[in-house]
Amino acid sequence: MKKQNKKENDARFEVRLSGSGGQGLIFAGVLLSEAVGVYGGKNVTQTQSYGPEARGGASRSDVVISEGTIYYPKAMELDLLMALTQEACDKYYADLKEDGILIVDSTYVRLVPTDRAYCLEFTRAARRVAGTPVVTNVVALGALSAITGIVDINNLEKVVLGRAPRGTEDKNKAALHEGYRMGQELLKQREAEKAVT
């Protein structure tokens, strides 16, 4: 019985982008949704939590992606959790499926709950390529694209350039591609490790 339920929900791919208020996670959710939905042709629903927790505390944006109709708009069991802070990682890890993907910003997330997690220094990379941590969310999206393949990097580039504030296009583009490169590199490294063991 339980298996059949799972099948019904298998059509859905549920993503949570989490961190602290001000890191641009809702904006990242919008970018991902637009890339996947408008340019990628899939159905998509993006929700967020507002309120006190959006100002400094743990903040999140959920994106549900499906080839079919999305009935329930919020995430039920996460396929992918992106955590940019330790607090967010601790708070939402329990919502991740057993075989779900965890991506963390290891600039801030020191204690990782699983050795299958993808750990990358997004904030440090943002400072390196754009000189500002403001584009950390975009670096993270680039890595998400490389690691999961759920969103095409070219589509992401289109929406990032379309939605970025004027004058910041170059920094955002650099951030996106740096994230993508980091993600690809980590994947390669993982495969090499697999081949060895």
Binding site: V30, G37, Q46, T47, P73, K74
Partner: peptide, 9 residues
């Protein structure tokens, strides 16, 4: 509130 703030295609 959910409908007002959520995004869909």
């Amino acid at each position: 509130e959910v409908l007002g703030h959520m995004r869909e295609k």
